[in-house]
Design a protein around this nucleic acid. Sequence first.
DNA 1: GCGTGTGAACTGGTTCACAGCG
DNA 2: CGCTGTGAACCAGTTCACACGC
Lengths: 209, 209
Amino acid sequence: MECSVPLRTVRRLTYLYQTAYSLIEQGQERISSTQLEEITGIPAATIRKDLQYVGSIGQNGSGYQTRSLAEAICRRFQLDRGTRACIVGLGRLGQAILNYEWFYRSGYEMVAGFDVNSNKIETLPARVRLYPAWQMSEVIRREEIRLGIITVPAQAAPEVLENLIEAGITDIINFAPYWLQCPDKRILIRNIDILQEFRVLSALRSLQE
Amino acid sequence: MECSVPLRTVRRLTYLYQTAYSLIEQGQERISSTQLEEITGIPAATIRKDLQYVGSIGQNGSGYQTRSLAEAICRRFQLDRGTRACIVGLGRLGQAILNYEWFYRSGYEMVAGFDVNSNKIETLPARVRLYPAWQMSEVIRREEIRLGIITVPAQAAPEVLENLIEAGITDIINFAPYWLQCPDKRILIRNIDILQEFRVLSALRSLQE
DNA sequence: GCGTGTGAACTGGTTCACAGCG
DNA sequence: CGCTGTGAACCAGTTCACACGC
């Protein structure tokens, strides 16, 4: 399948997916692109354009069925395959993600947590099995884990990345404030720097004055 | 000051700011746009274009001084003013941000935390004062807090937003998986949905196959 | 008539390429 | 000679506007 969907569009479509999902839960069965614009802030024309990447799923004159909207996006991007995930670094952020009850809605399934501090392994309450860091490679291979979530301090991040890739991980989400990249284009990495968002907001504020 | 800097550019410049900062710490005094491209992944031409919004600060033939680069961006967007911030919702994510040692590098200064559970207020270890939720308005006013960070469950988010705005907050960062918006354009809101990033990664993976 | 789907027109952000300066 | 700063050329992505189906 071609990689020709623009990243911007992917972002919006996954967001629409989630929106459709909550509409379903609220019992709403249909919605028009104009109404979607009100909820999401995405212009109606853009929404209709984006949905062309998914296929024609609307009904002329009466908008989209929320259920088929969610299903179509889900199918297009295989958002329900539940790829197995693990988390490395059980600080507060790591714990937050590890125990996030809606995590299954992310398209991944959490199956393991790792930390260098074996004290934590024994004492932390968790929904999934926790292991000391030295067992990482073995567990990742055995459990066929594909996504690694990095929530270790910045200086440890590069080494963790290396270990993860070496163990066969293909998807990475990195929360350490250290921009990770990998020459191998088959490995997908997303760096999320939370502080960065604060800086952006701060900058936007200064512009609005 | 005009609001005419594109959001994309603001994102990149704040990122360059942070990059320049770590280069300074590593003792590197100068850097060219080409080298910056290698580190950040931003094309050199784009970097030079972006920096035009900051002013001419490079030296022909020898690149940029890391220090003056950081300072110029900092000055342009007033990234060091230390606007006072508070956090609402002391679950794991809230605690993580509350005690994040590099938080001061975000351009904000953390001064208070709130939670409905007064048990937490008394028992959690924290660097700043914690208050029960009912004291929110009063404390925000007294301490002249401008940024509110929302880390409560989704269903509580809209009400918290209302309370914050009513108390005089102007900047919002919302981590609840519920898209907050405000008709009043003077209020700046950034919604950060962490799960959304997982969905995007999952979608990108499906496209790469 | 309402609302989708879509080619065509447009916009603004990115990339190019080079003049100018140290 | 290297690297910045910048107008000009380009292009992706957004918006418009309307034909078509319900």
